[in-house]
Design a protein around this nucleic acid. Structure first.
Length: 872
DNA sequence: ATCGTGCATGGTTAG
DNA sequence: TAACCATGCACGATC
């Protein structure tokens, strides 16, 4: 007896027969114990139960004649005990169907006879009488399977397929399917009971679908091609490498599984799984994990039909624990239960999170439930999903482009680990086709060499008509949240972003500039190309450099800033520096400089990762890259050497703007790479004109505000003088505060004027603050509030820098802005407490709203960074 | 506040 | 149109 046969599926917690007899019941037919949950039928005339294995192992002629089951205590039960070998075979060999001969093994088990222990006793005799009998009993052989050539001789197999073709023509009933694989299994056997009995019975009475679900590998519906790809046996002749969605072994009438749940397994996999061992793996169904399935809630929704077909019948909502083995051999106990739902049931497996995590599954992956026969142990395999659908070099596709799930990773890892040989050797599959299928994690794939990506369009053609929409719905919008929070996926996403850095504009095609809402976008007619990753640096002198590392000697070479390198590049390709055109040439950069450069580069990358993981990251790569450079610039100060990513060179002139952060959408940050060097002081582009215009407005406001401040001081002084006698300390504080404000304002104005005197625009200034200060009445203060509220709620730009988040650069927008201010003033009734204008110091810290830390903000205020010319 | 549980809701799809 | 099922949500338990 094989180890698997001994390790029967234990549904209710029994580790084995030896562990707990309570999980087993005694068959009144064979008077031996069988697992309680697997393969039972109740007598039609009494409440005794008969194990299906006993029934099938004897003869289903008897069963069909009786139209049901009779136990030994019933009037006609004696006929059940008539061995078919003596009754049928003796009378007429052609009328008999001798199924696998089971021999009692061990104390209480029926187990399949060891394949090599003695000559096969299985014989298949298919004749018209059988067809007639099956027709009468409503058996549908449309899904009859022939799992293994090890069981059938090739001749028998072909005969069977030939006859099954006729069966399909003659039989139209939908019923339980005969699965020859079950005849090998023995523990959970499909019993060819009439459909009427199936559908008329309660889930927990009579032969549960779970009990009958231990059927084996169904062949393709296209049985009209016997000997070709119709079955696993036939596949020995011509082995198709097609991942076929196989219908469930048993048709269950209206409860038949939807094609989307059909397990997709190649014939060869089936053959391998079943043909070389005493044990067989019976793929039951598969399901694409939804977000909720893979989420932390730990509930895996089971398709109703699948649950009722392959899981134990449950009548109570709390269900029963089910032990399922994963691909690594770990055994998990899930709670199989259901919820009432619209007069129906919704079946779930609870507590799957550890298992899901163990298999590193996420939404979009597929779990495949299978059963190992004999024993009926449920196993859960998986198939990872991939969104990569790159075509193969030979023109074929590894996956149909219309599909999302891609089986380029172990299909059902580790099943072979579960198939222990009877001899108990350490290697579960000695000399088996699986022995070279272990992946790096020790899992075992169903694929053999060459099976992984050799899928062709035939695959698609044989896929069931699964709606792509349906299949991908699970990983759609609602799954995005999960995917976004998945660290692995995040890592992939960042890797993708890194890959974006390697994209270069097509070298031979110039961009066409398209202005959308004031932003210039480059459009290329050709797709981008991949290039070698280089490092851009911007020196304090304004010079920008590009550095690349030789693939051969790993030395860094300086390149012209606008050079695009191919993916492979070496010193010999350095046509721009003849002195360093060889690897033997010394480094141009000292090790210290190199370390600094690389360190900064790493810091920049790290910061980018952090920003992205924090959700701060901008949606535009250029923005993020430029912001990193800006942040680095702020840290490094004047003498910085800032590495910039590809395409970031344009940010060079603005890298001393410390307020830019990831996600900043200000005018500076949104500049496309092509903006490099094109914004000169005399530039009249929209961006520059807008900045100049805003600066002019700002200065006017400052000037006006200064005048107001002076008037205010005078008024305060007068007021203080009038109430000097009764002057309270509070008033003194107010006055002091006002004086301080005034001083600060003047300082700010002076600074601004100082900047303007140089003909430079200070992008470090806080326009909002200035706007607040510049307003001379409450209405204008309301404007600020309204503007802020509009900005916060009405724009999509993250307020990530102190520069206005409104990035529109057209003058028309300014007009609209002014109009909006007026409208807001008209429409909004501002409560008195809403009119409070944040004081200068508070404003600088509290109204940031862009993720700046207070410390950083304070540092910015305390130590204004150098304000170099802003060359935009 | 977070987590777990049970149920309800609504979109999707098969019949 | 009914059934399915993914997921939201309320409520109680627990930290």
């Amino acid at each position: 007896m094989s180890s698997l046969a001994a390790g029967h599926l234990s549904i209710r917690g029994a580790e084995s027969l030896e562990d707990s007899r309570s999980a087993y019941d005694k068959c009144v037919f064979c008077e031996t114990f069988h697992l309680e949950e697997s393969g039972w039928r109740e007598c039609n005339y009494c409440d005794k139960r008969i194990h299906c294995g006993c029934i099938v192992s004897r003869s289903f002629f008897e069963l069909m004649d009786y139209g049901g089951i009779r136990c030994t205590g019933c009037p006609k039960s004696a006929q059940l005990h008539t061995p078919p070998s003596t009754r049928d075979r003796g009378e007429d060999e052609d009328k008999s169907v001798h199924l696998y001969k089971f021999t009692a093994s061990g104390e209480n088990h029926f187990s399949p006879q060891p394949r090599n222990s003695e000559p096969r006793s299985l014989s298949i005799k298919v004749n018209q009488e059988l067809v007639h009998l099956m027709g009468e009993t409503g058996i549908n052989l449309s899904n009859v399977v022939c799992p293994s050539m090890d069981i059938l001789s090739e001749e028998d197999h072909i005969r069977l397929l030939e006859n099954l073709k006729d069966f399909n023509k003659s039989l139209t009933h939908s019923s339980i399917n005969i699965s020859l694989g079950d005849l090998v299994g023995g523990a959970n056997l499909a019993v060819p009971f009439p459909t009427s009995q199936q559908e008329g019975s309660e889930p927990n009475t009579g032969p549960s679908s779970f009990q009958q679900g231990a059927s084996s590998h169904p062949i393709l519906p296209s049985l009209s091609k016997p000997g070709s790809a119709a079955g696993a046996g036939a596949s020995k002749l011509t082995v198709p490498q097609v991942r076929v969605a196989r219908p469930p072994a048993e048709g269950r009438g209206k409860n038949q599984l939807l094609p989307r749940y059909w397990p997709r397994i190649t014939d060869q996999e089936l053959e391998q799984l079943s043909g070389d061992l005493n044990s067989t793996i019976v793929p039951l169904f598969e399901k694409v994990l939804s977000a909720s399935d893979a989420g932390r809630i730990g509930r895996l929704v089971l398709p109703k039909a699948c649950a009722e077909a392959y899981f134990p019948p449950i009548s109570q909502s709390e269900g029963v624990p089910v032990r399922i083995q994963d691909v690594k051999g770990n055994e998990w106990t899930f709670q199989f239960r259901f919820w009432p739902n619209n007069n129906s049931r919704m079946y779930v497996l609870e507590g799957v999170t550890p298992c899901i995590q163990s298999m590193q599954l996420c939404a979009g992956d597929t779990v495949i439930f299978s059963r190992i026969n004999p024993g009926g142990k449920l196993v859960m395999g998986f198939r990872k999903a991939s969104h990569s659908m790159q075509p193969q070099a030979n023109g074929t596709s590894s996956v149909t482009p219309s599909r999302v799930v891609m089986e380029n990773i172990p299909v059902v890892g580790g099943y072979a680990d579960l198939l222990h040989p009877p001899n108990g050797t350490k290697d579960p599959l000695p000399n088996s086709p699986f022995e070279n299928l272990k992946d790096t994690r020790g899992n075992v794939s169903w694929h053999r060499n060459g099976d992984i990506v050799n899928r062709t369009s035939e695959d698609a053609t044989q896929l069931p008509p699964i709606s792509e929409k349906k299949r991908t719905r699970n990983i759609g919008l609602k799954s995005r949240r999960l995917l976004m929070h998945n660290e692995d996926v995040m890592e992939l996403r960042l890797t993708w972003e890194e890959a974006q850095d390697l994209l270069r504009p097509p070298p031979s095609v110039g961009p066409s500039i398209v202005t959308i809402e004031g932003h210039d976008f480059e459009e290329y007619d050709e797709p981008p190309v991949f290039g070698k990753r280089t490092v851009y640096i911007s020196r304090s002198s304004g010079d920008q450099e590009q550095w690349a590392q030789c693939d051969d000697c790993s030395k860094w070479r300086r390149l012209p800033i606008d050079v695009l390198l191919p993916p492979k590049w070496a010193c010999t390709d350095n046509i721009w520096d003849s002195e360093r055109r060889f690897c033997s040439a010394p480094d141009e950069m000292t090790p210290k400089e190199l370390d600094g450069l690389l360190r900064i580069s790493r810091d920049t990358k790290k910061r980018r990762l952090v920003d992205n993981q924090n959700g701060i990251g901008g949606s535009v790569d250029n923005e993020t890259a430029g912001l990193d450079a800006l942040a680095s610039a702020a840290e490094l100060g004047e003498s910085m050497v800032v590495p910039l990513g590809p395409g970031e060179a344009s940010m060079g002139p603005t890298t001393k703007h410390p307020r830019h952060r990831a996600g900043c959408t200000c005018i500076v940050c949104i500049q496309p790479p092509s903006g490099k060097g094109k914004h000169r002081p005399t530039c009249t582009c929209n961006v520059c004109m807008t900045v100049k215009r805003r600066f002019k407005t700002l200065m006017l406001r400052k000037k006006k505000q200064r005048q107001e401040s002076e008037h205010e001081q005078q008024a305060d002084a007068a007021s203080t003088s009038m109430h000097r006698d009764s002057g309270s300390q509070q008033q003194m504080n107010v006055a002091s505060s006002l004086v301080e404000k005034s001083e600060e304002r003047q300082a700010g104005v002076a600074a601004a004027e100082n900047g303007s005197s140089n003909g430079q625009i200070d992008l470090n200034c806080d326009p909002d603050r200035e706007e607040v200060e510049g307003f001379d009445n409450e209405a204008q203060k309301r404007h600020v509030n309204n503007v802020n509220s509009v900005t916060a709620s009405g724009t999509c730009f993250p307020a990530s820098c102190d520069y206005p988040t409104r990035t529109t650069t057209s003058s028309s927008f300014q007009q609209e802005e002014q109009q909006q201010l007026l409208d807001n003033e008209k429409q909004h009734f501002v409560q008195p407490n809403e009119e409070a204008v944040v004081s200068i110091g508070q404003k600088g810290k509290s109204s940031d709203g862009d993720g700046h830390s207070d410390d950083q903000e304070a540092a910015d205020d305390e130590e204004p960074p150098p304000r170099p010319p802003v060359d935009i």
